[in-house]
Write a protein that binds this DNA or RNA. Structure first.
Lengths: 107, 107
DNA sequence: TGAGTATATTCCTGTCAAGGCATATACGGG
DNA sequence: CCCGTATATGCCTTGACAGGAATATACTCA
């Protein structure tokens, strides 16, 4: 899990992921659109692929990288357990509501 | 956003966040439970707080750190746009379904 | 096989961040 | 104010990692 976060923590990798939401692309395309050099692009793609976020599909001369669903589903699950946690934890909820109501003093 | 990921990418910080799901804790408690030294614990807490993930509530001698909701909500939103993206992108969906159905050719 | 294109890998360097340890600061009690 | 406890900060060393440039590898086509 923290591997996923690590991969997405790097700004350029994040940009790559955002770009690939439009659809799979070849390395050169990615480098071109994001104005990155080809080698660093390949390196970032490698990290992202190793983290399971991307998948490469060889196509003739090129390698087409596309997003994978699993890590995002996993992330989603993790988050939903968090949502449940938050709902249960009244401490935080109370503080949250206080702010919403512009808080009346005397508590 | 990538600030959030950056904060969570560090294993010990992730452990802190997981721990705090049970409820807010003082620095010493956190350090104790996770077997971290107090100074590094404070440093990690600082990073987490600066990223907006935590909030410190001074209480006498101590500072009680607790999770904030906003970053998780934000993360959730980000993820949901992703979910939408994934549903739209038929390339990936097709591949996904193929796997699920043990793939019968000619789709 | 050789040329050409697309991508991956290697080496190098600078920067950033984490841990260890010492110490400063904050707060409460007397 | 002085003490004790809880927490934050500073300095140092070290390891990880990103970018740059050169080069190796993979694949296609003739």
């Amino acid at each position: 899990m923290h591997t996923t976060f690590n991969a997405l923590a790097e700004p350029n990798r994040m940009r790559i992921v955002e770009l690939l939401r439009e659809g799979p692309l070849a390395v050169g395309e990615i480098a071109d659109r994001l104005e990155l050099r080809q080698p660093q692009t390949s390196k970032h793609l490698k990290v992202l692929a190793n983290s399971g976020l991307l998948e490469a599909k060889p196509e003739a001369n090129r390698r087409i990288y596309g997003l994978k669903r699993e890590p995002f589903e996993e992330l989603d699950e993790w988050l939903s357990t968090f949502r449940r946690t938050m709902e249960t934890r009244l401490d935080n909820l109370a503080a949250y509501l206080e702010k919403l109501q512009d808080k009346q003093p005397g508590g």
